[in-house]
Simulated scan of single mutants.
Amino acid sequence: MHREFDLELDLTGLDSPMPMLKTKEALDQLQVGQVILVKTTAIGSEQNIRNLINNQPVTLRSFNKQNGVFHFVIEKAPALTA
């Protein structure tokens, strides 16, 4: 797991879909290669953020759940060109 992050988003306590929306906003601002740690407690966030990851130029570096908090470590990847 990454120990250093370019950005850490503590979205604990927010209801779905706010964690996913705020994660997308943050990812849009990152440069390629930057890493973000997202923390959320919203039950629907695990699937919502996984769906977001599958539709963005990003890589999920790690995921775990500790004491009811989901931790996503996401790296911005280069955009795919057609």
Rank of each mutant, 00 (worst) to 15 (best):
V38N: 08
I36K: 00
L80E: 12
I36R: 09
I74M: 00
F5K: 03
N48S: 15
Q34E: 14
L9E: 12
V32R: 02
V58T: 14
M20D: 02
E25V: 03
T41S: 13
D10M: 14
V69C: 11
A77Y: 02
Q66E: 15
L52R: 08
F5S: 01
N55S: 10
Q34D: 03
S62A: 15
Q31Y: 01
S62V: 02
E8P: 03
L37C: 09
A82Q: 08
F72G: 00
N67V: 04
D6Y: 03
T59W: 08
D10Q: 13
I49Q: 06
N64L: 14
V69F: 07
T12H: 08
L11P: 05
L9P: 03
F63S: 09
L52F: 08
A26V: 11
M20I: 07
Q47L: 15
S62M: 09
Q31F: 05
S45D: 14
L21Q: 05
A82L: 14
E25G: 00
H2K: 04
E8T: 11
G44M: 15
N55I: 00
M20S: 11
Q66I: 06
L60T: 09
T12S: 13
P57D: 14
K76G: 00
E8N: 10
D15C: 01
Q34R: 09
T59S: 09
A42M: 13
A26H: 09
L52K: 08
L11T: 05
P19I: 13
F72I: 05
L7Q: 07
A26T: 10
S16C: 10
N67A: 15
T41M: 06
R50F: 14
F70Y: 14
R3T: 09
T81H: 14
M18Y: 12
N64W: 07
L14Q: 12
I43W: 09
L27G: 04
A42W: 03
Q56R: 12
S62L: 04
S45Q: 03
G13T: 07
T81D: 09
L14W: 06
G68M: 07
I43T: 14
L21A: 06
P78V: 01
L7G: 04
L9V: 11
E25M: 10
I74S: 04
T40Q: 03
R61V: 04
S62E: 04
T40R: 03
